[in-house]
Amino acid sequence: MNAEQILFILFGAVSLIGAISVISFRHPIYSALSLIVTFFAQAGLFLLLGAHFVAAVQVIVYAGAIMVLFLFVIMLLNLGTLSAKGAMGGKLKGFAVILGILLAIEGIYIATNVLNNTAIASAQPATATPNTTTYEIGELLFSKYLLPFEVTSLILLAALIGVIVLVKRESESEN
């Protein structure tokens, strides 16, 4: 086993354990923390894949901003006491888990068998490719994908306005 494989197993295991903890912890704060751990392990996987810039952005956006917002809301609403109420029944839960396992088997089947016949599998430079630089990503973003890039700014603007409208209506109804 070389270093890359060991690191892949390490990060993969951590991210999976984190993901399972997200759905099994009772308290939302602990779920949020497990999710942060998962995001970190994923940033590690991105580093293994040579996507340094994406790894950094992953930590900045997900761990640094999105999860802080989650924690902020959990703390603001003091949600810990409410989560136990009205949990799903045992039978339904089992059914959901079985469905999930079926989905996982499907995914694994696609990853191992179906993709072998596509263009992705035939192009196999794999580890030989150098790390993607920030320059490359920037160039793609501002040339080939300029239109989608601008559309994302519209999405953000729409989200911004949406949030303001939501909050504004509330404070008006309170008065």
Binding site: I29, L33, I36, H52, F53, A55, A56, V57, V59, I60, A63, G64, A65, V68, L71, F72, M75, T133, T134
Partner: peptide, 24 residues
Amino acid sequence: INIGILYVLAITSLGVYGVVLGAW
């Protein structure tokens, strides 16, 4: 590392967790 300043920003943004979790 070639993303040095992003690394600094990423790690700085994690500092808030100590404060928030300690408080909670």
